[in-house]
């Protein structure tokens, strides 16, 4: 097993796996970011886990950017190489029309509930998930509450005026 300690070698590995369709960047805080397509994400994670030491799925969550056309949703994976102590972030963009992505449960069993949570709050479908149902919200709920169109406060209230306060 090769243990990669610098960003370049991980970038090469991912580029090879995705036939160079992945975009990589290092953010201001030193974290290596990848944007991977839905077709490649499982293969990339599988390879990174099996051959490059990223055995630990730190976190998996969704996010919603309604103003971004054709990539309104994203799923964010944080992987951690516990040997070289390297963290990377992999994100997958999804459009609102085809909001599904292959499940990561077969690579990281711990992704099970994290994917259920992401489904629960964003309605992102994880294909092949063994038990994709709501986890924190009640089963009868008919919407996905962390989407940005659902305002936290009742918008019909008229006793508050935010004209001068709040951005």
């Amino acid at each position: 097993m090769t243990v990669h300690t610098n960003n370049d070698s991980i970038i090469n590995v991912v580029a090879e796996l995705t036939q160079s369709t992945a975009q990589s960047s290092v953010d201001d805080y030193g974290m290596l970011n990848f944007v991977v397509s839905t077709d490649h994400v499982v293969a990339v994670c599988q390879q990174l886990r099996d051959n490059h030491g990223f055995i630990f799925l730190t976190d998996l969550c969704g996010a919603h950017y309604p103003e971004r056309k054709d990539s309104e949703f994203e799923v964010v994976y944080h992987l951690h190489n516990l040997v070289s102590n390297h963290r990377i972030r992999i994100r997958v963009y999804l459009s609102e029309e085809s909001i599904s992505i292959p499940t990561m449960v077969n690579v990281y069993p711990g992704a099970n509930w994290m994917e259920r949570e992401t489904f629960d709050f964003y309605g992102i479908i994880f294909e092949g998930h063994p038990n994709l149902k709501r986890i924190l919200n009640m089963d009868e709920m008919d919407y996905h509450p962390l989407r940005k169109q659902y305002a936290l406060e009742d918008e019909t209230r008229d006793d508050k005026n935010n004209t001068f306060f709040g951005r």
Binding site: D27, D28, Y29, M31, D59, H78, R89, F165, R167
Partner: peptide, 14 residues
């Protein structure tokens, strides 16, 4: 009032 300017960006901190 929560009017402090804060940079754009993404962080993961544990």
């Amino acid at each position: 009032m929560g009017e402090t300017a804060i940079p754009k960006g993404e962080v993961y901190f544990a």
